[in-house]
Write a protein that binds this DNA or RNA. Structure first.
Lengths: 144, 144
DNA sequence: GGAAATGTTTACGTTGACGTCAAGGTTAGC
DNA sequence: GCTAACCTTGACGTCAACGTAAACATTTCC
C-alpha cells in the first residue's frame, strides 16, 4: 500500500522521472527506501518537498546549487534543534545560527526587491494592454 | 559627443559586452548606428531598453526567445499605430490586436500567480528566520 | 507463468546563454 | 604620428540541467 513509485511522484510533482533521479543524484532530494528489487518508494513528504523546492527555485531564480545551499541551511537549523543537548553552547553553533539568520534576512530583502520589480513589469504590461484595448475600440467604432 | 560605446553601455546596463553583442546578433537589441570605422554607437534609449528587458526576463523567468516573442508583440502594437492609415480596418490587424491583448492578459495573470508564490516562499523564510532567532535567544539566556 | 508495463543504471547527447581566445582594425591622448 | 586602450568579427569552449537510448531487472495483471 505504502510508497509511491517514481512515475506517480513525477505526475504529482510536475517533474520528470529523470529530473527526480537527478535531484537525488546530486543530493538535493533524500534517497527514498527501496523495494526488495531495488525500486524507489517515495512518501508523500518527498512529493511535498519537491513541490516546495521547485517553487522556491522558480521564485528566487535559484540554480540547483544555490538551492542546495539553502536546503543545507534550513537543515542546519533542524540538526541544531535535534543535537541541542550534545552540542549546546559552543561558539560554532552560535555562529551557524547567526549565519542562518543573516542569510535568511538577505533573502527576504531580495524578495522585497523582486516584488518591486514585478510591479514595474506589471505597469508596463497594463500600459500595453490598455493601448491594445484602445486600438481595438477605435477599430470597432470605425467598422460600424 | 553623441553615442555611447559598448563598454559604457555595459557598465550602465550591468551586462557584459559579449552579451550586448549577442543580443544584437539574435535580434533582441536593434543594431545601433556605427562610426565611420565600424564602431557601435548606442543611444540612451538602448540602455533603457536593455535595463527594461533584463528586468522583465528575470521577473517573468523568460528565456531569450520568449523575451523575443514578447518584444515582437509590443512592437506589433507600435507598428500598428504607425501604419494606422495604410492598413486600417483589415481583419488581420484586428486579429493581431486581439492576440496582443490576450497574451498580455495571460502574462498579467501569471504575474499574479507569481506574487502568490513569492508569498509562500516568504512565509517559509520568515518561519525559518523566527526559529533561528528563537534559538539564538535561548543561546544568549543560557550563556549569561 | 508469461507478457507488458514500469523500474534500474550507465553513459553519451543536447541546448541555451554566454565566456574566451585570436587576429586584427579604430580612436584618443600625448 | 605613435602607442595604449578600446573596438571589431569569427570561432571554438563551457557549464548547468537535464534528454535520450541501451541493456537489463522487477512488477503487475490476466
Amino acid at each position: 500500500m505504502n510508497g509511491l513509485k517514481i512515475d506517480e511522484v513525477a505526475k504529482q510533482s510536475g517533474l520528470t522521472k529523470r529530473t527526480i533521479r537527478y535531484y537525488e543524484q546530486i543530493g538535493l532530494l533524500s534517497s527514498p527506501p527501496r523495494s526488495e528489487g531495488g525500486i524507489r518508494l517515495y512518501s508523500k513528504e518527498h512529493v511535498e518537498f519537491l513541490k516546495k523546492i521547485t517553487n522556491a527555485k522558480e521564485v528566487m531564480g535559484f540554480s540547483l546549487s544555490e538551492l542546495q545551499e539553502f536546503i543545507t541551511l534550513s537543515d542546519t537549523l533542524e540538526a541544531q534543534r535535534h543535537d541541542y543537548r550534545q552540542f549546546k553552547g559552543t561558539n560554532q553553533q552560535k555562529e551557524k545560527l547567526e549565519k542562518v539568520y543573516m542569510t535568511v534576512e538577505e533573502q527576504l530583502k531580495l524578495l522585497e526587491q523582486k516584488k518591486k520589480n514585478i510591479i514595474k513589469v506589471e505597469e508596463d504590461l497594463m500600459n500595453l494592454r490598455d493601448r491594445a484595448k484602445a486600438a481595438l475600440i477605435r477599430f470597432e467604432q470605425e467598422n460600424s
